[in-house]
Design a binder for these strands. Structure first.
Lengths: 213, 213
DNA sequence: TCTGTAATTATACACTTGCAGAATTACTCG
DNA sequence: CGAGTAATTCTGCAAGTGTATAATTACAGA
């Protein structure tokens, strides 16, 4: 009998891919890597499982695409924070730090995603390359902003010093991001941001907390 | 015919459990959560899969036990660093920081383990409780040592200040631990330790790097 | 040495997994 | 309107999963 087959409409290939990627990320974040099955992805995306291999070479290929999409989105979020608005270099650095340890960048789901992907990153060279590129891109951005803020205050630093400072500040940010994501209830609202600004200020020798609470 | 069945010797229950736990951790660290199957665990431990349910209620029960064993080992490692040797509070703090961002605490496998467990931690309340306890234990230790080092230098801080400093220093340590584990080849030997000591020194306002390279 | 028993192995089962290909349907173009 | 085609659904499959239980074996104590 006709009609017992599920109705469907043809959609734009890009929007179908995007739906599958979104479904993959959602499952990975909320229920972990073990829940990322072709059937679960398809259900979450509102299609049948055949679509995965129709639009991607394999499930792993879809997962890789999802990872890249996630990393790109994260990069663009921090980039936007960096570009937007005026102020001097010191104020822009403060904004970047603040944005990096508060939602939507720092949230439990982002941490879950990161954890879910990290062991694939170690084995898959394409994912590893994406990973390193994203990480170093962020750190370079941070290093440039630190150097600019210091120059603004009349302090010139060597590239080597700037690198060390960037690694240190990046560690503070990553650490707070990690702790906020792992124990979301252990910190007051704004506490992590406040601590981040103070510590990074202390490390580079500038005050970043004026204008804050 | 007799003899086509695999030979075995009866072993101490504790050593069998330990072997299964070690196998679980090894698989989780090297090949990720998806590789942690009853058959793989059994092979790694040199037994047949029946042993898992003979010594544990379920595979999940074994995984929980492995997580607890790992966390306890990590705690004991930092505890040992803290207790050992003399020196003043400032020097002991420096040793703790150094130990926390160098092997065997900070290494790629430890990061993989952490990532593999973290999404289970979110759902399983027993694991979550272990997680929080371990984390807060370490942070309290750090906070006490920071307060002691400051007191030694004649600076008294309120509990609130000490808490903030401990969170910040913990973030530096976690961040360096994370970066060292995620990109093991991106840093020179001793670089992370050096950066950690300098940054934490800057945050709390003490010099921790004398006697270092 | 022999027997009892618990440790260990081996086998079976129901279920899930990723993947492949056939069947069907919605839309495009003449 | 009617045919072609590609998107989508559907069904099946071999391999792998955790668990349950039966079959065997090593060892302790009489």
């Amino acid at each position: 009998m006709p009609g017992d087959r599920r109705r469907f409409t043809r959609e734009d290939p890009d929007s179908r891919k995007e739906a599958l990627i979104r479904a993959t990320l959602s499952l990975m974040a909320t229920r972990g890597p073990s829940a990322v099955t072709v059937r679960a992805i398809a259900e979450e995306a509102g299609v049948t499982q055949g679509m995965i291999r129709h639009y991607f070479l394999s499930k792993q290929d879809l997962v890789n695409a999802a990872y890249q999409a996630h990393m790109q989105a994260q990069t663009e979020m921090s980039q936007a924070t960096h570009d937007n608005g005026g102020g001097n270099a010191r104020q822009r650095l403060a904004r970047l730090v603040h944005a990096s340890v508060t939602p939507p960048v720092a949230e439990p789901m982002a941490l879950s995603l990161w954890a879910g992907f990290i062991h694939m990153v170690r084995r898959d060279s394409a994912m590893r390359s994406t990973h390193e590129k994203t990480y170093l891109h962020y750190r370079d951005l941070l290093q440039a902003m630190i150097a600019a803020a210091l120059a603004e205050a009349g302090r010139m630093v060597t590239a080597e010093e700037a690198r060390s400072l960037a690694i240190a500040c990046n560690a503070v940010i990553d650490g707070l991001w990690l702790e906020g994501g792992a124990l979301p209830d252990a910190f007051d609202g704004g506490e992590l941001s406040q601590i981040g600004l103070q510590s990074i200020g202390a490390i580079i020798g500038l005050t970043l907390t004026d204008g804050q609470a």
